[in-house]
Design a protein around this nucleic acid. Structure first.
Lengths: 334, 334
DNA sequence: CCAAACGAATTAAACGCTTAACCTAGTGGG
DNA sequence: CCCACTAGGTTAAGCGTTTAATTCGTTTGG
């Protein structure tokens, strides 16, 4: 159907190998011929077939990224920076969304294998050990997010949740808050639990009793319910630390509905610094986890792993940074 | 490096053609052999190489989607439904993000050609005519969003912006609003202008003078500025129709900052029904344009175009639906 | 002035799969 | 009983590239 390298070779009066060498910039072609080929390529509007290229070179030069939900505002920025960095490094990037579904996670991993990716950034927690082993067996580089111990072809990106939570709790403490509630996420999600544990530890460090701890669902609805529940507590907390921004938005809405003012009556904080934190009314005090850095580092890590002959998986730290918004302030006078 | 079809064939004691026929379900293989091959495939953990497959079959069975900004909350849901539908139809889907950059748009289109896609959904307006022709020359099916006249390999998805705006304006009118402002988007974006023109027309139909019309930028910042500007106007509009949700959020924030209440003093409406509309405080009255339907229809349209021998591009209508939120109410008494 | 080295191009063999063409028994109709 | 089918396989020729091996002039150093 389309143009092939042979058409270009014929039109330029050279061999296909020469055309290939020009396109791949191997430097084996003379200046004159080089220019001739390039102009012919342009004139005909030729684009090399990626499938043939990958097949012949036995190298897909492709990186994959698997996320649990592209609609989750956490991911788009990660994906974007991953793709940009991958392209910079000369890779094609493919994306799979699992929708939090283990079956789709399996399909996504299979897709990566079918595409013969050099590496894949796994940004979901529904992946099974079996699948991980299968990837390892194929020597496909893998990065995880707050998940696995590193070894061989696997690196891990660790967001410094502890420091993030610590900054929030300390900030609230300095502002006079003593009864600080926590709204958790899903119990089985490790990164959620890390935040919960960090909260408990930080509270104790300050000589405060942790709690009340309410369970959310990482979504707006869970936050809303938690907000309404908080409103009914006695004694009422003066501050609420939510596991992520979306939950915080829900909590705020719940509190407003129950007739409280934020932050005058109750302070609320989020986590992740999604655009939501900025757009919300009031804007949310939150923690930025540098999502752009995350995507970039994942691509870099995969590149490094897949290029090394005897790869040594590493752990990468992603710093967290407190972002002040209008949803928090001094504790109300008792 | 990896397992090949030959390994499977050898292990099962059959020819590679038989393995291929089993994997492609051509029905040319007997029951016994079929099962034998399947179990061998499973046992060895074999996955066919997508590149070899596409090369040999001269058919990529891939659909592409090009969006201008994956961080724009409008797109993730579209992408998701596009991918789901594409998979259902037996396609692989690849995504490119152009970041509103014409150069990256060109790169994205080139990537689609390199991948030999059967069709591509273009959901950005920065694409050049030259590129469109190049796609057409390759007989690649294309769908646009509110953009091109249809012909040959090109279909168009038309969101019924007019009806959406009409529903908003009529709703405000019924609630007693007579001075209704409009916050526009970028002047060069066709879909934005359609909304602006619809607003003007609807106002005239109701015997009202359109205006004031302020220019935003489709982003939060533009809305914020517009909100502050509205607050200073005299006579002050009692309602503000924003070109999209993000702008509406900005407008609301601007108005609140200026000391007005929403919706008691001024009603504000958005457009697109992004999650933002729901999460915002107050939640936003907006128009749902069925983004999930959009992605699905794009995939369907491409499938239809690329399967037909003599394709006849069509125009698809996407309905718009008013969604009431807490950001609008009756006009204040004068 | 010759051999060695080099630069610039060609030839041809993969890469892992699909598929048309071909083969070989076993079946059933006349 | 024979022929034409059919069901169930195999063989081998591509698909559009890359790349190792090769060829063929031209330099260059000794």
């Amino acid at each position: 159907m389309g143009l092939t390298i042979r058409d270009v070779a014929k039109a330029a009066g050279v061999s296909t190998a020469t055309v290939s060498n020009v396109l791949n910039k191997t430097g084996k072609v003379g200046r004159r011929t080089h220019l001739l080929v390039l102009s012919t390529v342009k004139r005909l509007g030729y684009f090399p077939n990626v499938h043939a290229r990958h097949l012949a070179s036995r190298d897909s030069r492709t990186l994959g990224i698997i996320v649990s939900d592209i609609e989750n505002p956490f991911f788009p920025e990660v994906i974007k920076s991953f793709e940009v960095r991958a392209r910079q490094l000369g890779y094609d990037a493919i994306l799979s969304d699992t929708n939090y579904d283990p079956r789709r996670t399996r399909e996504a991993a299979e897709r990566m294998m079918e595409h013969n990716v050099r590496g894949v950034a796994v940004m979901t927690s529904e992946i099974s050990l079996k699948l991980i082993h299968e990837l390892a067996r194929r020597r496909i580089a893998v990065t995880f997010l707050d998940l696995a111990p590193v070894r061989g072809y696997m690196s891990n990106l660790r967001i410094d949740y502890f420091s993030g939570v610590q900054q929030i709790v300390n900030y609230l403490y300095k502002n006079g808050h003593r009864r600080i509630a926590f709204i958790a996420g899903r119990p089985r999600l490790k990164s959620n639990n890390v935040r919960l544990e960090a909260y408990e530890k930080c509270m104790r460090n300050l000589g405060l009793e942790p709690g009340p701890i309410l369970r959310g669902d990482l979504r707006f609805e869970g936050g809303l319910a938690a907000g309404l529940a908080i409103a009914k507590l006695s004694p009422r907390p003066t501050a609420v630390v939510a596991v992520n921004d979306l939950t915080a938005v829900g909590v705020i809405k719940g509190l407003l509905k129950a007739g409280f003012r934020v932050p005058q009556d109750i302070s609320v904080t989020g986590f992740d610094n999604t655009r939501l934190a900025e757009y919300s009314n009031p804007s949310i005090t939150t923690v930025d986890v540098h999502r752009d850095m995350l995507g970039k580092m994942a691509a870099d890590a995969l590149h490094e792993l897949s290029c090394s002959a005897d790869p040594h998986g590493r752990e990468y730290q992603i710093p967290a940074e407190l972002i002040l918004g209008d949803s928090s302030g001094p504790a109300p006078a008792e």
